[in-house]
Design a binder for these strands. Structure first.
Lengths: 116, 116
DNA sequence: TTCATGTACAACCATTTGGTTGTAGGTTAC
DNA sequence: GTAACCTACAACCAAATGGTTGTACATGAA
């Protein structure tokens, strides 16, 4: 199942969203259990509005989703997006492994003057 | 082998460094083969100084290292750091899997009124 | 030596980011 | 109905980001 290739802009947003300790903690909390924005906000030493903005950044990156229930806005994590981000990093590692293999092959090839 | 736990600040830097398409391409290039900064700079439609700054951001995040040779500064990738970043994302996925397992266990437990 | 190349770094600028306070509107509880 | 709660959103601010140009210096090539 190909899920829709990520655009450079979407990748920018994912990494940028992960680049803040408060947001990483919000992700963790939302993965552990669905929580309202104000419930999340109580955990951090900053205003409700600030937490609201962090949640918006995570939502724009599709790392979390919001669901309205009554007066609350419930936040829950989107593990599929995290998985895709992890795969992205793996892809860079793969480039390295391929290079390492290439070098390995070159080293194990007999050099020009070595035929018996 | 525990390599030295990453601090929140280091994690910030890794993700922030990955959050730019030019920098992600520089990483890719450096993983493919060692290149000088000016050699890299030719690839992008921006000034040498701009590329120099991107390289500095990547270096601060330990995603690449520089090695001086003659008048050139050779850039090469640090796959170990990429690996750690990927593991970090996996950790968030693990939180989700644990929750999923927990829910699964709850669902498979017999409910209060079900004993025969 | 002289010139071209590769780098470092400062100064500057526009935009984005991460925080604040304040105001307003919808929903629940009493 | 009224008060308390949850959210949305605007306006503002300081600091960081991503780019530029310009200057200076070290190294390699002719």
């Amino acid at each position: 199942m190909v899920v829709h290739e990520l655009s450079e802009l979407e990748i920018d947003r994912i990494f940028q969203a992960m680049a803040d300790a408060t947001r990483r903690d919000i992700i963790k909390q939302a993965m552990l259990r669905e929580q309202s924005v104000s419930e999340l906000a109580k955990r951090y030493r900053m205003s409700f509005a600030a937490v609201q903005k962090h949640v918006a950044v995570l939502e724009r990156a599709s790392l979390i989703t919001k669901e309205k229930r009554g007066r609350e806005q419930l936040v829950h994590g989107n593990p599929a997006m995290l998985h895709r981000a992890a795969q992205l990093l793996d892809a860079y590692e793969d480039i390295w492994r391929q290079r390492a293999n290439r070098i390995g092959e070159l080293l194990s090839e007999p050099s020009q003057g070595m035929e018996s």
